[in-house]
Design a protein around this nucleic acid. Structure first.
Lengths: 291, 291
DNA sequence: CATTTTATCTGACTTAAGTCAGGTAATTTG
DNA sequence: CAAATTACCTGACTTAAGTCAGATAAAATG
């Protein structure tokens, strides 16, 4: 009765509603009703099209219109007709609006810092929060193509190397491995894909063109807090789609038996094991797939 | 920028606000404003005193009064003066009110089940939710004395034995250990204490009187999702307080080196290591503390 | 026992949020 | 190019939520 799954979820909801309730109040305390603050926030976060904001916040068009007029009168935003379609309007922050938006952001950040500061074992708490957020937001996880030298990509690679270091008995040193240079993972030679969940990178995969209709899959990683959501499968599928677009007909990859989930995924999705095709010291399994 | 702790907490808040927002709507859909539904719920959950409800929900006394009249007119609740103090009023559910309250409970349970059903790896998700709920609710964790044969106590003991099974190389079989009989952990011979966090038992400790001003500390356990919150320390402190009340002057306990956190706690809190005092096959360390 | 305090109630108000029926101007469609 | 559609705006309305100043009756206080 007190420890069954449903009670545990409801307990979680109660605990979090309290906390989030307190966090929602950060919208207050600046002398502006919640509706107006939400619109200001939406604009600050890049929702400029009035219809997009209305849709995002689920507002009636009449209410939306009034909220926009209110923010305009406060001198926080400006609106102008859309350049392509004069019926539509686009909103943007004025300088004062930008400052006000940042003040709200600071309030939210302060709440988050305060929560962190009063939590011991904050690493475990953050991991648990990541897991919950990824599970709740699983329908909104997207796979995006980014530059392998970008911040999100470097974050993923750092986590990937750290994971290998933990998994391999003798650790992992990037310098000893054949580090694929980033330029080979940019179109038209290859691609680098990340899985994004509400702004956080939770997985990645690289495809490195090697010439002659061939490419190698590298750096497949999924955050431990996001496993079991089918993300590796989605990343691999997206990589194969990109490969076809780039007229690549044969994909190869190497991996290690310390990564059994990866081995299982490859075997289940049409890859066939082949002989060693490089002298990298880490891998002990080699696969190939014809597209 | 996208993977720092503060961003991760804010991502968690966004994800959970969506979910909880959807859950809050379970209060709607029954043709009753949120305020009235919250009061009905509070009464259903045992807050009968009007002042207590007002305090719990943070409502103005005027508003509270009107909400109560509304629920009374709907035939869902009844109020009567408090028997000790006729200024105060106590509210209770009518039969119709009880049914309505249960309908709300069912809606909440359904939402929770739906979340569970669409989540793979629900064990990991539930553990993460427990951890977050315990961390957010750490200020509301209480230590309570309960019967060692009650459901909450048996849940704790089950988790404790499972934990020993995982920690000990050769597993753990209760039958081989000197299972303290429950009667020895009830006043006046001893006590059994649990740590409760918003309705969930997250830790326990037993004290078993052995006669002659002596007692043994048994079954100290804290849920993995609630470690680092100082719960073991609070449980032990509460057990010592209870021991003094029961005129016990010497406490003893046995433990195992596979439980290093426990060993460290005992050493830091005034326990001294002594020679083996029983022939139980599991323990390899023995401690004593004079009160 | 008169005074003060406490718990609740009532009436008069305000604000926020949302709904709905037109209205206007730009754009799309047949 | 007339008719329909679309995007947004405006005015009139409703509901929910909350605030505040007394009113009332019971209980506590000196």
């Amino acid at each position: 009765m007190s420890n069954d799954p449903i009670s545990r979820i409801r307990r979680f909801n109660r605990a979090v509603t309290r906390e989030v309730g307190a966090l929602d109040n950060s919208f207050l305390g600046r002398g502006r009703p919640l509706g107006a603050a939400r619109v200001l926030n939406a604009i600050g976060h890049g929702h400029t099209d009035v219809a997009a904001i209305r849709d995002y916040l689920g507002l009636d068009s009449g209410l939306m219109s009034r909220l926009l007029r209110g923010l305009e009168e406060e001198g926080l935003i400006e609106t102008e007709p859309h350049s392509d379609d004069a019926r539509r309007r686009v909103a943007s922050l004025t300088e004062a609006g930008q400052r006000e938006f940042e003040a709200y952001e600071d309030l939210s950040n302060d709440r988050a810092s305060a929560l962190l500061a009063r939590s011991p074992h904050s690493d475990a708490l953050l991991l648990a929060m990541d897991l919950v957020a990824s599970a709740l937001g699983r329908d909104r996880i997207s796979v995006e193509e980014i530059d392998p030298r970008s911040e999100a990509a470097r974050f993923c690679l750092g986590e990937y190397y750290a994971e290998l270091g933990r998994r391999f008995e003798k650790g992992f040193d990037v310098a000893l491995s054949r580090d694929p240079d980033a330029a080979a993972m940019v179109r038209p030679r290859g691609v680098f894909l990340v899985a994004m969940s509400d702004g956080l990178a939770i997985g990645c995969v690289g495809m490195k063109g090697t010439g002659g209709g061939m490419a190698e899959i590298k750096r497949l990683w999924v955050a431990s807090s996001a496993r079991g959501l089918g993300i590796a499968r989605r990343l691999m599928a997206a990589a194969e789609t990109a490969a076809r677009e780039l007229s690549i007909t044969t994909l190869r990859l190497d991996t290690n038996s310390a990564l059994p989930e990866a081995l299982q995924l490859y075997r289940k999705s049409g890859w066939v094991e082949i002989d060693r095709f490089n002298d990298d010291p880490y891998p002990d399994h080699f696969f190939e797939k014809h597209l």
